[in-house]
Amino acid sequence: MAGLELLSDQGYRLDGRKATELRKLQARMGVFGQADGSAYLEQGNTKALAVVYGPHEVRGSRSKSLHDRAVINCQYSMATFSTAERKRRPHGDRKSSEMSLHLKQTFEAAVLTQLYPRSQIDIYVKILQSDGGNYSACVNAATLALVDAGIPMRDYVCACTAGFVEDTPLADLCHAEESGGGTTLSLALLPRRENIALVQMDARLHQDHLPALMEAATVACKGLSKVLDSVVRQHLQEVSVQTRE
């Protein structure tokens, strides 16, 4: 079979978006009562659930605790039914642990950990359905969960992927585009100051194209931050209406 045409001559992608358009993002905060903070987020067909506990005392060995700031503990997992072919292990494989590490690094850069010395913040993220951009969906969901938990952060952390097809940067790749063999760059950004929390790219890309790709990812992240912001505001409004009554 001929390879999929990721970008048609008319400028449409496989799912009908143009190069710079993002997938539809929907999110809800405070989906669980038990946890300190929680959020559910859909980015296109990628669905992620994030739960935050803490800050609380360091569990387990005390030696892990830091005297000047909080420890962030992340765990990433994928539901066995999240991909087209059923997964064997929901978490603990190489990929998941790597992803957990990335999430941890991302949020250590964003959360004001020095406010909570000798304590721990747990972030659990689960992918319910995977359709490309798992990392960015996790970051965005976790951000909302952290906001829900009331943990102070420097800024929203917004993450988005960008790819490069036929010299055109594409924002927010879906699974078909990611697996199409091109370059994928994931970027986690603190949008207000454009501080980069994490950037990752595995495939080869010519140096000259990197600025264009970064630019596309940055623009996409900023777009996402507006959506996340509106979700938070909406949530606050709902909560305040409820509490007033």
Binding site: L14, D15, G16, R17, E21, R23, K24, G44, N45, A84, E85, D131, C174, A176
Partner: peptide
């Protein structure tokens, strides 16, 4: 090979 059910999005405008 195997029959796989794939869900794809489609954006209309």
């Amino acid at each position: 090979g195997r029959k796989v059910r794939v869900v794809r999005e489609l954006y209309l405008r």
